[in-house]
């Protein structure tokens, strides 16, 4: 598969297991951050652990708290490894910058359809590329 190219990228090169859904993301609205799982019952990943996963979702949702929460989750080793979005908002980007978390956003295809759940993926922010390894 040809690597997908993101228009926005930051952070370090990482490789990990993808957790994929066509749904939104807000750390405050959607997560049980103590136990590291999606807790909003209507979220497509409800009950799934996000810890050390490369989260691949549609869009950033909700309020401003995520800007602090990614940093707080990472300090407890209860954070996603990286976040990939079709559409990012300012808060997710600010939060990733604060937390030192890898983030890619803005593709020419729907990234939640282009990458299968649980596949291994590599993110390279320097080139803005997402590569599916298998």
């Amino acid at each position: 598969m040809t690597p997908l190219k993101a228009r926005h990228a930051m952070g370090q090169k990482v490789t990990g297991r993808a957790l994929v859904a066509s749904d939104g993301f807000s750390a405050r609205y959607d997560l049980d951050r103590i136990n590291g799982v999606f807790s909003r019952s209507t979220h497509k990943l409800a009950g799934e652990s996000y810890v050390d996963k490369i989260l691949i979702l549609d869009t950033a949702k909700g309020g401003v708290a995520t800007a602090w929460m990614l940093h707080e989750m990472k300090a407890r080793n209860m954070a996603p490894m990286a976040i990939v979005l079709n559409t990012v908002n300012t808060i997710l980007a600010q939060g990733a910058a604060m937390a030192g978390m890898t983030m890619l956003a803005g593709f020419d295809v729907d990234v939640t359809k282009a990458v299968e759940n649980e596949s291994m993926v590599e993110l390279d922010p320097e080139t803005g590329s997402l590569r599916v390894l298998g």
Binding site: V64, A65, T66, A67, W68, Q94, M98
Partner: peptide, 8 residues
């Protein structure tokens, strides 16, 4: 204004 999270 943009949404400015706490750190920003």
């Amino acid at each position: 204004s943009n949404f400015e999270g706490g750190p920003s």
